[in-house]
Design a protein around this nucleic acid. Structure first.
Lengths: 337, 337
DNA sequence: TACCTAAAATAACTCGATTTAGCATTTATT
DNA sequence: AATAAATGCTAAATCGAGTTATTTTAGGTA
């Protein structure tokens, strides 16, 4: 194994000081009044032998790593995977690498991951925050580290974030169902207090009460295991046979719901109408195709990374945090009459 | 921003040398005959102030990073995302972090990423290799770095890898179609020479020629953009109206195919039968549900990370590389008569 | 008391870069 | 000619650890 060249090797080979090499490689040649001729000689040699500075050493000295830490809830969920992918592309184009992990919405795991990222001198953070992580995020911000949240925000914490207008989205979808004549509309959601879910619930509630309809809400716990997710949904539908429409809180619940309805042999939309928050391939291809509240995935990814790159570039700590609220798109397909 | 504690701060606070602190923290106290009493005092204090060694400095000195580099083709593809997720979990449980990226099957991008990983002193590599990357992989191996490939392998390069029995899988699926009486079976695949695709093609060819049937192969280029993928497929089907069954080379082609058939208003399986390599939610939920060749995702992820962890733990460079070939499962659903 | 040895701890070097402060020359100014 | 300023480059300190080689201390022995 031929050992890697260091800046000292370069300096020695050229009989100059490593300081000079460093200045030249960091584009400070002009500033440091190093002769054109020497600059060229060094650059040529460096290229010739393929020398690449050791970025660990560089990070140790400068405190910068050119790494962005990305914490999503679950990278195997299509919504997060697609966003992660786009963020990754933009990051690379701007000279940043991504180090990522799934939080599983687990507070302790997330704390450990944030600590790990910090430890690695990550330059910026993109986080889909679980509940109870307020302090850790605040601490990052207090220490001047750029943080962008998305999908949900933390009410007590002032930070940049990108979310969609959840409340209006479900309000709008519920109104759509009501206008179609559905009366027993159920909302199936996750049992957690995060803003995105709370807002989706509020939107549903608002539309229902406005129309003087009785709400029917089922909150289930999140599990990776499919059975543990489908069983409570099935139980709920059996207990509420009057249900004529369902609004699902997210794509995961929607697909579980589809499986349940298939098992129960319910016809969509004859027996029951469906709308799901989040859109993806499954909903477009299943039969009938599902009406869905589509989040603007491209725009979310774009805003998130743009916000973070801005923070990273303007080292000035601009106190004003940006809150971006994007709108969703109700894609009407054939799962409603 | 309170600055982070360093080992020197700890040493100073306790009026001892940082060497001693380092020895104690690295479990070499006994070996270095440091008194029980001091060990306890140091550990207690370190815990008290929450000191964590700077891992960059540590990596710089030791050459180890406890980071695994993961290069998949596309993290937003369900197959890779699910495997990535499981690898991530196992890695974390074993004290390793993951740094990942999508290669897009782009050789140059992959080369840059490998260089970047190397540069960051990544301890081990998990790679879904694109074509033309043989030399870079060989170079890693020559330098004693653990590398595990999956999904495909590189014929000229001796390394650990985990793949499925692609040839038999498509042979078997094609036979299944033939036995059902289909005669004009098309194979739609990607236009590349990688082992997994080549083997899938061979399996199809073998079954067809064995039964003296004429093969009908469409190879399309890969694009992220959906339109660019669906158009050639649609063109192919229009040119070959006799086609009574299609075998798709992977999940991406399968979903594109589903969309095309929907547009052409073809009935499955009445007008045309379908089987797709790779299985996932869409195929289970679409109507009719699709017969699919399911790869053993859990087993693949498990084997990959187990192989790598073994290499990482047994610093001995055991020359014998392991090749793991797993079997697939033909999940018969209703997309065939 | 002087000497030796094992135990306990440490000074100094290293990893590979960046950065600060400064040293010779040469050129310009008075 | 003496001094100041500009030019071109570099020695040494630094980041925060791990590691090697060495010193100090305590206790036992002759």
């Amino acid at each position: 194994m031929k050992k890697k060249l260091s800046i000292v090797d370069i300096a020695n080979s050229l009989n100059i000081s490593k300081t000079t090499v460093s200045f030249i490689l960091n584009g400070r040649a002009r500033e440091k009044r190093i002769s054109e001729e020497l600059v060229e000689r060094v650059l040529k040699y460096v290229k010739e032998v393929g020398y690449k500075p050791n970025s660990l050493a560089k990070s140790l000295r400068t405190g910068k790593s050119n790494i962005i830490g990305l914490l999503v809830q679950d990278i195997s969920n299509n919504f997060f995977a697609t966003i992660a992918r786009q963020i990754e592309d933009r990051a690379y184009k701007n000279g940043y690498k991504i180090i990522y992990s799934s939080t599983d919405n687990d507070t302790q795991k997330t704390q450990e991951l944030i600590a790990m990222f910090r430890d690695r001198h990550v330059d910026g953070y993109i986080i889909v925050p679980p509940e109870g992580i307020e302090e850790d995020i605040s601490s990052l911000i207090k220490d001047g580290l750029p943080v962008v949240l998305f999908d949900r925000y933390l009410p007590g914490v002032e930070t940049d974030y990108v979310v969609v207008d959840n409340l209006f989205s479900t309000y709008n979808a519920t109104r759509y169902l009501i206008d179609k004549g559905y009366k027993n509309i159920a909302f199936i959601s996750f049992n957690n207090q995060q803003t995105q879910m709370a807002d989706r619930l509020s939107g549903y509630n608002k539309a229902m009460t406005q129309s003087k309809l009785t709400t029917s809400i089922k909150e289930v716990d999140f599990y990776q295991d499919e059975k543990l997710m489908t069983e409570p949904i099935m139980a709920f539908l059996n207990e509420h046979p009057e249900t004529d429409a369902i609004l699902f809180g997210n794509n995961h619940l929607g697909t579980c719901g589809l499986k349940v309805l298939k098992k129960l042999d319910k016809k969509v939309p004859e027996d029951i109408a469906l709308i799901c928050f989040d859109d993806y391939e499954v909903f477009e291809l299943c039969n009938p195709p599902l009406t869905a509240i589509a989040q603007p995935i491209d725009a979310i990814a774009d805003k998130v990374i743009t916000l973070l790159l801005n923070r990273l570039n303007t080292s000035v700590e601009n106190g004003v945090k940006q809150q971006v609220i994007l709108t969703t798109d109700l894609r009407i397909r054939k799962s409603t009459k």
